[in-house]
């Protein structure tokens, strides 16, 4: 069904309703920006509080290369960290669910590990992982996996034990029970966590770039922050917001596809 939908969308059909649906968000966005622009101009708001949207756009257009290469670099770090964090988060949840002893021994430590501000350990991160893209991905991974673990465990706990017993009585193996009962049950909660993890992974990548790097949105942000270039701060915030929303939409899209598929089973 989704295949049909996709191919229909790619056909050059110019139905007015569809065109309107596609440009509606753009219309609203343009309107919103115009209102902000007018407000800033009318009330003479100082750029230190809120620069005009056109000034922010001009800033990005003036040096597009810096923003594009920064964006690309941050995307790579975030994607690596997010994927690793999600896979590890679910894997740890499975381990913790299977072996209560391990959970009770180490779950508190996992929580503790998340209370450590990585920014305090810049030198250690560089020391252990060097000045590589990988080092940034590690930080991104580090701060994004716990919500995934917590929510996956929560999803596992919502499973009716009688259902598990029933399957076991039919001779189902652990792996089958996991795939047939636990994982589908955890999917809704898992996706809530994945949406969070996607933005956390972005935070991780950006903070990771504060440990001495030449490209990336985090570098642009730092540069703008310490030069008191408020327009530059806003420009970077806008680019980060676009990236964050893009990631979020991707996860939401996956949620719609996969949760739908999960229910179908």
């Amino acid at each position: 069904m989704s295949g049909i939908k996709a191919s229909a969308a790619s056909l050059p059909v110019f139905s007015t309703g569809r065109v309107y649906a596609a440009i509606k968000p753009i219309l609203w966005l343009t309107l919103g920006l115009a209102v902000i622009e007018a407000t800033v101009v009318l009330f003479e708001i100082r750029p230190y509080y809120l620069p005009r949207p056109s000034a922010i756009a001009a800033n990005i257009v003036a040096t597009p290369g810096a923003y594009i290469s920064g964006l690309w670099r941050t995307v790579l770090e975030t994607a690596l960290g997010f994927v690793a964090g999600s896979v590890f988060g679910v894997a740890i949840a499975i381990v913790f669910h299977r072996w209560t002893l391990l959970r009770e021994l180490f779950f508190p430590l996992f929580v503790v590990s998340q209370t450590i501000p990585v920014i305090a350990f810049g030198a250690v991160v560089v020391l252990w992982f060097g000045n590589t893209l990988f080092a940034k991905a590690v930080i991104s991974f580090y701060i994004s996996f716990l919500p995934v673990t917590v929510n996956t465990l929560l999803g596992f706990n919502s499973v009716d034990p009688r259902q598990v017993q029933l399957m076991r009585s039919f001779g189902a193996k652990d792996g089958q029970i996991l795939r047939r009962i636990y994982l589908p049950a955890a999917l809704p909660q898992l996706f809530v966590a994945l949406k969070l993890a996607s933005s956390l992974a972005l935070v991780g990548a950006i903070v990771g770039e504060w440990f001495g790097d030449t490209t990336g949105l985090g570098v642009l942000l730092l540069q703008a922050m310490y030069n008191e270039n408020v327009v530059g701060i806003w420009a970077t915030i806008v680019v980060s917001a676009c990236l964050g929303m893009g990631l979020y939409s991707l996860v939401a899209l996956a949620e719609r596809r996969i949760v739908f598929w999960g229910n179908e089973q």
């Binding site: 920014i119 305090a120 810049g122 030198a123 560089v126 020391l127 060097g130 000045n131 770039e209 504060w210 440990f211 001495g212 790097d213 030449t214 570098v219 730092l222």
Partner: peptide, 19 residues
Amino acid sequence: TINPGGPNLLTENLVATGA
């Protein structure tokens, strides 16, 4: 290779450890 610094990145630390 020139590596830039950053907040809470202590140059002495990185040089002392050989990074």
